[in-house]
Design a protein around this nucleic acid. Structure first.
Lengths: 337, 337
DNA sequence: TTGTAAGCGTTATCAA
DNA sequence: TTGATAACGCTTACAA
């Protein structure tokens, strides 16, 4: 079993090995009739092209590196991975996943650069990668594509969510409902967490939006990565003055536990307090949380397509794309009390 | 850049290519002094072993196949992936992820068997794989390891969570709190969803546990995959008679939205109703949900180690492992009203 | 459109 | 412990 080589298939089909090779690698270069014969022989012998051999000869590795912060199981990363795999998988590429969740791992990765010679493209996901690191990666000499990277400098392509626009949308939505005292809850993750970048951008988006509304107070509730975010947010929300009538959260993940606890503090949502999240994780729909939807799955797929294109030659079409989050109106926002 | 071959390193270090190869593949077969010289040369020339070439020559592929149902971003799958990668990554293996979420994809996979000749092991994750499919996979002739598979027949190794024990634990916990009217909410996913298997097992565990308590009523609330699970569960919970004083959910994911809505129906948790979940997803701790913890991350790591061992030779130690879920006592269970 | 033949960059075998 | 050399199974000029 599993032993049939390309030679055997060639013999079985009565053609040369090159024809067999072409049948799989460049089907359009071989006559349909011949192709069918080869395919039949291949099926009969349980033949599959050895990717190792194909890789060696062709100079490709058929592997893509994905660099990410935090862990791969967090909603954003896992969905990006899914999007990447949905494009790379059918194209014959595997994804090598490198989670760089602390300074040591990160340093190690960038000094060892284990991807050298062994990947055909590098995807940097929601990583506040610095210029030095980018230039190190450029040494690998393969396309470098960003997803939600703070900067696009040095990248061959990138796709980013428009965090600022998202917060602007959230803000205007609340304003239109009559809210004038708005709070923003965000985390201050230490180290290399991907969240740092989005936290800053989203905050800035809100600040910018508020600048156009002098009559609005915008209170920041910053929760350090070490404390109990839910408790800290609740404590501040329920004691600050003026009491906010609406609160934006950096992520749905932060919003949901607070949303759950709010009634225990006598605050009814949305009657006493409007709540708006960011991300639209699966729970948000189930719990009726108004939020800004982003689709990391799509970002991954777009990035994968850019990578594939960049491997063929320089990207011509817009190399850098920005996608707008979509406001999902649900049950947690209402007219200000 | 990125061009240095093993020859160049050999020359630079003043040794033969075989020595360079050994330095990376079997470091202990080369004198430390020589090794250092080679390593220095390699670093200087930015050399990394080409995995494609190593793979071709050695007959390995350095790829592992992961078969899963549903999508890779669901909590369980994503965490299994993380566990697998934490072991396979450092060992030099990449993971090819195959999500088989419907009958067509599944059929296609098992007829094409794209993993043939191209992976060194296959991991089947929480998949109600049937005996035919197992035997098809055996043709690939590499170790076949299961994670939460309904049966271990034909597998070289497996690690499974003890769903029944988990539900038994949940049940006894509720009994000890004085509950006698208990409900169980579970989904009935169609098709190949991984959840089907756990749904059945968990239900059975509960039924078995209840058999020892004739004075206890156990009501099943079955939610089909197509309807609004949260709404259906709430509707039944609030109208059934006798009114349950405690409810077990098949998963935390199902429990949490219901937990959130319960107060709107005038039911206070845990005073009027005790709630217990299964999984211990990150939200559960934040929301104080009593649940049974399983660690898919660990399952993945264990499975990966089994796979690595099985690649060396037949597994000697216990090939099949079962791990017990752990009861996480939090705020949603209390003495029966 | 198809066939011939020369490697791709390692590792494994064997000898030194 | 190290070195010379023959594969590993394909892809790709180039020729037919």
């Amino acid at each position: 079993m599993t032993k049939a080589s390309i030679q055997a298939v060639a013999k079985e089909a009565g053609v040369s090995v090159s024809t067999v090779s072409r049948t799989f690698a460049k089907p359009d270069l071989v006559l349909p009739k011949t192709r069918d014969r080869v395919l039949a022989a291949a099926r009969k012998l349980d033949f599959q092209v050895s990717r190792s051999a194909a890789a060696l000869k062709s100079g490709q590795s058929f592997r893509i590196a994905l660099l990410h912060a935090d862990t791969i199981d967090v909603w954003f990363n896992a969905n990006v991975f899914r999007g990447l795999n949905s494009v790379f998988g059918p194209a014959g590429y595997d994804i090598s996943v490198y989670g760089l969740s602390n300074a040591r791992e990160r340093h190690e990765f960038f000094t060892e650069l284990p991807v050298r010679r062994n990947v055909d493209a590098v995807i940097v996901c929601s990583f506040d990668i610095d210029p030095d690191e980018v230039s190190r990666l450029k040494d690998v000499n393969v396309p470098l594509i960003g997803i939600n990277t703070p900067s696009t400098i040095g990248l061959d392509g990138a796709v980013c969510i428009d965090d600022k626009l998202g917060m602007h949308t959230a803000f205007e939505h609340l304003i239109s409902l009559g809210h004038r005292n708005i709070a923003y809850v965000y985390g201050a993750p230490d180290d290399t967490s991907q969240l740092r970048f989005s936290a800053e951008n989203r905050l800035q988006g809100l600040i910018d939006a508020a600048a156009a509304h002098p009559d609005v107070t915008l209170e920041q509730i910053r929760c350090s990565g070490h404390e109990d975010t839910t408790g800290a947010a609740l404590a501040q929300l329920t004691t600050m003055s003026p009491t906010p009538t609406a609160v934006c959260f950096q992520t749905d993940e932060m919003a949901i536990p607070v949303l759950y606890r709010l009634p225990q503090y006598g605050l009814r949502v949305p009657r006493d307090l409007s709540v708006i999240g960011f991300d639209d994780i699966p729970f948000s729909a189930k719990m009726g949380l108004t939020t800004l939807r982003q689709r990391p799955n799509d970002l991954g797929a777009i990035a994968a397509r850019k990578a594939l294109a960049a491997m063929e030659g320089p990207l011509s079409e817009p190399r850098f794309e920005t996608v707008a989050p979509q406001l999902m109106l649900r049950d947690t926002t209402a007219i200000a009390a």
